[in-house]
Write a protein that binds this DNA or RNA. Sequence first.
DNA 1: ACCTGAACACCGTTCAAGT
DNA 2: ACCTGAACACCGTTCAAGT
Lengths: 204, 204
Amino acid sequence: MARRSDHSRGELRKMALAAAESIAEQEGARGLTAREVAGRIGYSVGTLYNLFGTLDDLIVEVNGTTLDALYDSLMEARRKADSDEPETVIAAFAAAYIDFIDRQPNRWDILFEHKLPKGRRLPNWYFEKLGRLLTLLDGSLAPLFAADQKRDRARAARVLWCGLHGICSLARSGKLGVVTGESVPDLTEALLTTYFAGLRARAR
Amino acid sequence: MARRSDHSRGELRKMALAAAESIAEQEGARGLTAREVAGRIGYSVGTLYNLFGTLDDLIVEVNGTTLDALYDSLMEARRKADSDEPETVIAAFAAAYIDFIDRQPNRWDILFEHKLPKGRRLPNWYFEKLGRLLTLLDGSLAPLFAADQKRDRARAARVLWCGLHGICSLARSGKLGVVTGESVPDLTEALLTTYFAGLRARAR
DNA sequence: ACCTGAACACCGTTCAAGT
DNA sequence: ACCTGAACACCGTTCAAGT
């Protein structure tokens, strides 16, 4: 059979991607299989491979849209923030990040769990999307750093992002540890308060 | 056939666990399959299931020994540290943690990537092993906190652990972002320096 | 040119059947 | 009682064959 051409290659990719995103969020990584995606768009597995090469490539693409959604959430958080003070903006970013994970836990898991097989590299557009997120944090720290301290500022942005990510990541995997149960927002506040106190102390 | 009883149930478990650890480190999560473990100890898959119930349970057990190894590495780092100053000890812990990941990347990946299926909970001994690690950090912060600030101290320990973990985790997944490439030790030092500056500033 | 679906080499898991 | 291995219901991936 074949040559249905009900859809152009571009349409097909979009349909598959949308199906994959929906499966990702509903079923998590374990349910995101080539056969399931193909089934949902009404094409055979073969077509999926012809479209994306590999299931890993499809997942990378899904993660790309997750990064976009994350970026949008952070942008919106900044827009809504009622101040340009770094503490305020970063706290708003953190809250938006936590909220994003709360709303889309499975997509967030897949974003950070997925690893390409040994020899393979993430595409350049992927790093650009990551960079955009970091630039957002970096920019909000501007008031705390002199013009000749761009490197320190970039490093601080990265450290904050790592810290927040570590809190969320360990919390979600249930490996934050033990009974007591400080909450994610608690730990985040502790991180930000102390880290900013450190930044301001050193600035003096 | 069967009833070989060449080995007791306990011996069998130990053999399987050892085989699984070796596969985990050599091949990573993708190679750690029931058939492979069974093959290496010379028994059938059925026996493995009779021993561990589920492959997930075997992996949890493997992760338990990874947590033990991590604990040992940190203990050794503290023993070797030439001071009890929190900054020094925590830096030594961080270096040991980074070194551990460097030496056993696949086992570390499995430790933090593995998630039990939806309804299942990690066993209690697992949380105890995690708690032991946190207690180590917590204890080393004692000089910075008054006796009635145990909660703050515990929170600080957790935040540091999350921060370090976030740095290592994003670095390993290639998602730390972008060209510049601050190294893991660089970011770790930035985290510790600023965070401790914050702790000391607030103490005053 | 485009698409299919059978085929290959794997998975985790179960369980009747053997000793 | 203990262990096996075939069987079930899946995987990712490929590719000859069809239109």
